[in-house]
Computed example of a mutant assay.
Amino acid sequence: MDATIRFAVQDLYTDYVRCVDDTRYEEWPDFFTDECMYRVVSRENFDAGMQMSALALESKAMLKDRVYGMNETIYHAPYLQRHVVGIPKILGAENGAIRAQANYVVLRTKLDAFSEVFNTGRYIDTIVTENGRMKFKERICVFDGELVPNSIVYPI
């Protein structure tokens, strides 16, 4: 794989977590194509090929609706997130799509508590170029544990 493409994929991952960690949620859907899939799923369900997900959004419109919900309708104790993401491994490319994977750790900090490990796992992504910009066609966040915290409010 060409080094330029590898760096572009790394930039996509870096820009994504910077956007989410900086709480610029209104920009989050712009990392995806109009027809996309964003799933947060347990490793057990993913490995078994089950579609049951903690969160499944099937288009950019659904991502935008989620942002509205996070900002306007979901009641929760506020917290901040900080992602630590490994260097993405490009698994292959075909028909103009890149398949990539990277490990992640999400730390959560509530305003009145110490930081804690919130979620660990791996991203499994399909990336395409749209209007000269790399975007996620599919982002599957496979979390390691079988249990998920009470709620996943913000993007993983």
Results as ranks from 00 to 15, higher is better:
2 D>E: 14
4 T>F: 07
5 I>Y: 01
7 F>H: 13
8 A>S: 10
8 A>G: 07
10 Q>M: 11
12 L>K: 01
14 T>E: 07
14 T>S: 15
15 D>I: 02
15 D>V: 00
16 Y>K: 03
17 V>Q: 09
20 V>M: 02
21 D>E: 06
21 D>A: 11
22 D>H: 06
23 T>K: 12
27 E>I: 03
28 W>Q: 01
28 W>P: 05
29 P>M: 12
30 D>C: 09
30 D>I: 00
33 T>E: 04
34 D>M: 09
39 R>Q: 15
40 V>T: 12
41 V>Y: 02
42 S>V: 07
43 R>Q: 14
45 N>A: 10
45 N>W: 03
46 F>Y: 15
46 F>D: 12
47 D>I: 08
49 G>A: 11
54 A>G: 05
56 A>K: 13
57 L>R: 02
58 E>M: 13
58 E>Y: 10
60 K>T: 05
60 K>W: 01
61 A>Y: 04
62 M>L: 06
64 K>T: 11
64 K>P: 00
66 R>G: 00
68 Y>M: 10
70 M>P: 08
71 N>I: 09
72 E>Y: 08
72 E>F: 12
73 T>P: 03
75 Y>N: 14
77 A>P: 03
78 P>N: 12
79 Y>H: 12
79 Y>S: 00
80 L>S: 12
80 L>G: 07
84 V>L: 07
84 V>M: 13
85 V>A: 10
87 I>S: 15
89 K>T: 15
91 L>W: 02
91 L>M: 14
92 G>F: 13
93 A>F: 01
93 A>Y: 11
95 N>M: 09
96 G>L: 03
100 A>T: 08
100 A>W: 00
101 Q>E: 15
101 Q>A: 06
101 Q>Y: 00
102 A>T: 07
103 N>H: 10
103 N>G: 15
104 Y>I: 07
105 V>M: 14
105 V>K: 03
107 L>G: 10
109 T>L: 04
112 D>F: 06
115 S>W: 00
118 F>N: 08
123 Y>L: 08
123 Y>H: 09
124 I>A: 10
125 D>F: 00
125 D>P: 04
125 D>I: 02
126 T>N: 02
127 I>A: 10
129 T>P: 01
130 E>S: 03
130 E>F: 01
131 N>T: 12
131 N>C: 12
136 F>A: 04
136 F>I: 05
136 F>C: 02
139 R>F: 13
139 R>E: 09
139 R>D: 04
140 I>H: 01
143 F>G: 05
143 F>T: 03
148 V>K: 04
148 V>E: 06
151 S>T: 10
152 I>D: 06
152 I>N: 05
153 V>E: 07
153 V>A: 06
154 Y>S: 04
154 Y>T: 06
155 P>Y: 02
155 P>L: 01
155 P>V: 03
156 I>T: 02
